[in-house]
């Protein structure tokens, strides 16, 4: 149940994809936040977060995603999510994340819509 947690980053010229694996709680969330902030500080403001391998996201994890949205908003950047389950997508819409970040079914469409 407690998946191995991991973060993979795939950087391209104009964007970066962050892929998380495992339970998105405070521990994984803090690592995700650190990686995202590093990318943003280095001028990469077009981000995709791929949550396909993240089966559970708690409200603390969502808080951290909100902080990333805010950091990008301050730099007029864009964040798209992909790989969400139906419940995750419903939760993101309920908590207004979908108002400030795109939600796409797969990484390809999330990148294409940055």
């Amino acid at each position: 149940m407690l998946d191995k947690f991991d973060i993979q980053i795939r950087e391209a010229k104009e964007h970066a994809v962050i892929e998380t694996t495992g339970y998105l709680n405070d521990a994984l969330g803090e690592q995700l936040s650190k990686k995202a902030q590093e990318l943003i500080q280095n001028g990469c403001t077009q981000l995709v977060i791929n949550l396909e391998k993240t089966t559970l996201i708690n409200s603390i994890g969502i808080s951290i995603l909100i902080e990333i949205i805010e950091a990008l908003s301050e730099r007029e950047g864009t964040l798209n999510f992909c790989g969400l389950s139906a419940t995750q997508e419903r939760t993101f819409r309920m908590m207004a994340l979908a108002k400030y970040a795109g939600i796409f079914p797969d990484e390809e469409s999330a990148i294409a819509n940055l």
Partner: peptide, 8 residues
């Protein structure tokens, strides 16, 4: 929050 409806 930067966006008031994004309550953390």
């Amino acid at each position: 929050s930067v966006h008031p409806d994004l309550r953390k």
